[in-house]
Amino acid sequence: MKQIIPIVALALFFSCQNTAQSKKEQQAVINAIPIEVPIENGKARAYFASGCFWCVEAIYESVKGVEESISGYSGGYTKNPTYGASNTGKTGHAEAVEIIYNPNIVTFETLVDVYFASQNVTQVNGQGNDRGSQYRSIIFYQNEKQKNLILAKKLALEKKLNVKIAAEVYPFQKFWIAEEYHQDYEKRNPNNSYIRNVSIPRLNRFKANFPKELLKDDHH
């Protein structure tokens, strides 16, 4: 459950996260050759980690050209990660989303802009009270063009805000789809306290500051 962790437990928790992230297996993931996902039926795919995937899924689905946003896990070194395993911080994975989009309507560059505009860009290993390496910010690239674009935008934002941007930049390897009950969680659980108090306010903050012409008219 996504909630505030007691301070003592939190200290131990972060210790585990840092150890997991520094493992040689994790470094192998970071240094791997990216895998490019081919366009199918005119649809492309992009992958982002930005805290709770319930929140990120809804944010991307508010953008024109995004056909679907799927919750899952990526960036780690274990096979078949589960929600419970990911929450231990020992899999290396972060909660991530797979964005299925029409590149004729929305570009990868715009999706990266959505990414930076929808989070606290300076928070390391988390967003808000969701803390731990499983909530860390990662942008996944599938080729050198995407990598260079991401790095350029990250550097420009650091200079503009005069801060260090927390987002890591990883070569995409594999996306593991999360358990069925996580999919479209906000839509199916509008009265959930986390959705009301965290997810929807985060979505509304993003929509208030992002160009309206890039957002769907009928999205909540």
Results as ranks from 00 to 15, higher is better:
residue 38 P to L: 13
residue 70 I to S: 06
residue 109 E to D: 10
residue 12 L to P: 03
residue 185 Y to M: 03
residue 180 E to H: 06
residue 118 S to Q: 04
residue 14 F to L: 12
residue 13 F to R: 10
residue 211 P to G: 02
residue 190 P to V: 00
residue 91 T to L: 12
residue 143 N to I: 05
residue 158 E to P: 06
residue 20 A to P: 05
residue 144 E to Q: 14
residue 68 E to R: 15
residue 10 L to C: 05
residue 94 A to L: 14
residue 11 A to Q: 10
residue 67 E to T: 15
residue 185 Y to R: 03
residue 56 V to N: 01
residue 95 E to L: 12
residue 155 L to W: 05
residue 54 W to E: 01
residue 90 K to W: 08
residue 49 A to F: 12
residue 148 N to P: 02
residue 103 P to G: 04
residue 126 G to W: 04
residue 134 Q to G: 03
residue 155 L to D: 08
residue 198 V to S: 02
residue 84 G to M: 13
residue 156 A to D: 05
residue 32 A to W: 13
residue 67 E to Y: 12
residue 69 S to F: 11
residue 18 N to G: 07
residue 55 C to H: 05
residue 215 L to A: 05
residue 192 N to T: 06
residue 176 W to I: 04
residue 105 I to A: 06
residue 213 E to L: 01
residue 83 Y to M: 13
residue 102 N to C: 09
residue 30 I to Q: 15
residue 74 S to D: 09
residue 140 F to P: 00
residue 68 E to I: 07
residue 176 W to M: 02
residue 90 K to N: 12
residue 23 K to G: 09
residue 49 A to C: 12
residue 82 T to S: 15
residue 34 P to E: 11
residue 58 A to L: 09
residue 125 N to V: 02
residue 82 T to Y: 09
residue 69 S to P: 07
residue 136 R to N: 07
residue 137 S to W: 10
residue 150 I to Y: 00
residue 34 P to M: 08
residue 9 A to L: 10
residue 136 R to T: 00
residue 45 R to S: 14
residue 210 F to M: 02
residue 65 G to E: 00
residue 73 Y to M: 07
residue 162 N to D: 11
residue 19 T to W: 13
residue 204 N to R: 13
residue 208 A to P: 07
residue 89 G to N: 14
residue 150 I to G: 00
residue 132 G to F: 08
residue 158 E to N: 06
residue 144 E to H: 04
residue 69 S to D: 07
residue 212 K to S: 08
residue 48 F to Y: 14
residue 149 L to C: 04
residue 210 F to A: 01
residue 100 I to H: 04
residue 183 Q to A: 10
residue 104 N to D: 09
residue 86 S to M: 15
residue 210 F to R: 02
residue 144 E to I: 03
residue 59 I to Y: 03
residue 113 D to M: 00
residue 148 N to F: 04
residue 104 N to F: 01
residue 99 I to T: 04
residue 143 N to A: 09
residue 76 G to N: 11
residue 151 L to Q: 12
residue 81 P to H: 13
residue 31 N to C: 09
residue 161 L to F: 07
residue 18 N to A: 11
residue 139 I to P: 00
residue 25 E to H: 09
residue 160 K to H: 08
residue 119 Q to C: 14
residue 106 V to F: 01
residue 144 E to G: 12
residue 98 E to R: 15
residue 77 Y to P: 10
residue 21 Q to I: 12
residue 137 S to K: 14
residue 84 G to N: 15
residue 61 E to I: 11
residue 35 I to W: 03
